[in-house]
């Protein structure tokens, strides 16, 4: 497929994809990777700390056993924390974007295709949602909901719920133009019901937009999860989370700057990776960007003469 071909030619997208794949692998094989250096994110190493609780030695206690140093006060291995932290970030990021994209696609397709009152009501709801102070609402919600409700699932739902309006609005716009295209009218003229038109005619044509949105929503969701954990309403300790480590590290910055650097760099790299990859994907899927000049003419149909 020429999407892959143009993605491969885009150096930035390729680099982004490599970064993303590395982090996903790290998340999947976290126990294996940390096992190699013989560490886990839960064991305390108080011997690595000095009297004030700060890590002993250079760069927050970097050593052969602790490649990224250790956590102040507890002495837990920071490398293990960062590697395990990618599990929460990536799982929450992907799950939340899937929720957003599914909701957004459903709402956008339905409101764009049916129009009328459905569309008017949905569009107003989208306007309200987009203007909503979502972070404050999320903090309030995570504080109110009973502790027995699994925290990661709640975060996925909350982030996903605030991501769909943007997707819905874009999909609705595309559907508005698509539904006037002749192939949709032709399908209706054949006696197709709304379900058939939505699933077989419209959905395949907005699918590339959904893919791009998913790729761009993942880093945004990862960022939101980190922000919630930073504010202390994310996943509960002791589950490692970059956001919480960054939140803790702020207080230690003057004595142990390395504690901020490693989780921060991980968060930065993974969001940048996803964003750059998403950009590349959008360019690859957009015919106006990818097919230019002679390339386009080469792929033009070659009509067989006797079959005109």
């Amino acid at each position: 497929m020429n999407v892959w071909r143009s993605l491969r030619r885009d150096g930035w997208a390729l680099a982004g994809a490599v970064v993303v794949v590395l982090f996903v692998l790290a998340a999947l094989f976290a126990p294996l990777i940390t096992g190699v250096v013989g560490q886990n994110p839960y064991t305390y190493h108080l011997s690595t700390l000095d009297g004030s609780g700060a890590p002993k030695g250079f760069g927050g206690g970097i050593s052969a056993q602790h490649p990224f140093g250790v956590e102040p006060l507890t002495g837990r291995d920071l490398f293990a924390i960062v590697v395990y932290g990618s599990q929460v970030s990536i799982a929450v990021g992907i799950a939340a974007s899937v929720v957003s994209v599914l909701l957004g696609a459903l709402v956008g397709l339905v409101s764009g295709y049916f129009g009328g009152w459905t569309d008017r009501i949905v569009s107003r709801v989208v306007d309200v949602m987009l203007g909503f102070p979502s972070l404050i609402f999320m903090i309030a919600l995570t504080a109110i909901v009973a502790a027995s409700f699994p925290r990661p699932a709640l975060i996925v739902l909350v982030i996903g719920f605030f991501g769909w309006p943007a997707v819905a609005r874009v999909i609705r716009g595309q559907v508005l133009t698509l539904k006037r295209r002749t192939f949709v009218v032709a399908s209706e003229a054949m006696g197709a019901g709304p379900g058939h038109v939505l699933l077989t005619q419209l959905l395949p044509n907005v699918f590339s937009t959904l893919l791009v949105y998913a790729a761009i929503l993942v880093p945004a969701s990862i960022g939101t999860e980190a922000a919630l954990s930073f504010l202390g309403v994310g996943v509960p300790p002791p589950t490692p989370s970059w956001g919480r480590s960054i939140g803790d590290a702020v207080a230690w910055f003057s004595t142990d700057p390395a504690y901020l650097v490693f989780p921060g760099a991980a968060l930065f790299l993974v969001t940048l990776g996803f964003n750059v990859f998403g950009d590349g994907l959008r360019d690859a899927l957009d015919p106006r960007v990818s097919r230019r000049g002679s390339h386009r003419r080469r792929t033009a149909p070659v009509p067989t003469e006797e079959l005109v």
Binding site: R181, T182, F183, V185, A186, S187, A189, M190, T200, Q201, P204, N205, F207
Partner: peptide, 14 residues
């Protein structure tokens, strides 16, 4: 039904 513009009467993704 047969429509005027054959370019748009067939779904490009199918």
């Amino acid at each position: 039904t047969v429509f005027q513009d054959p370019a748009s009467s067939l779904n490009p993704r199918n």
